Simulated assay, not measured.
Amino acid sequence: MSAKPTTAGRTTADARGDVVVLLIGMRVNHFWAVHQWIPVMLAMFRMLAELKKDPDRGLLSRVLLTASPRTYCVVQYWASAERLYAYASAPDAFHHQVWARVNRMERDGKVRGHVGIWHETYVVPEGRYEAVYGDMPPFGLAAAHGQVPLAERGRTGKDRFAWRAPAS
């Protein structure tokens, strides 16, 4: 995997309109229960691979994070909430199979608390997000929407929050 080239100077994300962010992850509650948490981790990687192969599903970018030795997170940027929900409920998507399996295991009492799963979804209106990158390749919101020189959106955070995309 080749490294993305660094963009010199200060930039910001070229996002326009609402931004959809999904935080999703897992927490290993019992490290010794590898047979419980490894399948969860592998399922997440498989879903990310499926989404990368089919950009029309709406995932624009993602960042993998380790919050602690037992908590892992994927920050995902989506084209819209509708496309995120369409993927989550699509019968042909791997997510549908995984969620059905989790629900069956809970119903049958087979989930023993060895691994936790969670997600939070945010739809952030235009003018309510701001991003600054210094000497960075496209990352986070900028990887999802593109990168522009900081000056295009204003000198201060207050200016950038006030920026609105021109009417089309």
Rank of each mutant, 00 (worst) to 15 (best):
V102L: 12
S80V: 07
F161T: 04
V19L: 01
D108W: 05
L141V: 04
G116K: 10
A81I: 14
R10H: 00
K4F: 07
D108R: 15
P149C: 04
I38V: 15
W118R: 00
A79H: 06
R153T: 00
W32K: 14
D14K: 13
G109H: 03
V102R: 05
S2I: 08
P125F: 01
L150T: 09
F45C: 04
G58S: 12
P55H: 10
S80H: 09
E82M: 04
R83Y: 07
D135S: 08
R101Y: 05
D159C: 03
H114W: 13
A13H: 09
P39G: 02
S80A: 15
G109S: 14
S2H: 10
H30C: 09
A100I: 09
L60E: 09
A8N: 02
A167V: 08
V19F: 10
A100M: 11
F161P: 09
P5Q: 13
A67M: 13
A15C: 09
I117M: 14
G146H: 08
R160V: 04
I24K: 12
T71S: 10
H30Q: 02
A43Y: 13
P166N: 04
H95C: 06
G157K: 07
Y85F: 11
I38S: 09
A67H: 13
W32D: 03
A90Y: 00
T66E: 02
A143T: 05
K158Q: 04
D135P: 05
R46W: 01
H96G: 13
P55W: 01
A165L: 07
E50M: 03
D14I: 08
A167T: 06
A43W: 08
W163F: 10
W32A: 12
G127A: 08
F94R: 11
R164K: 02
T6A: 11
L84V: 07
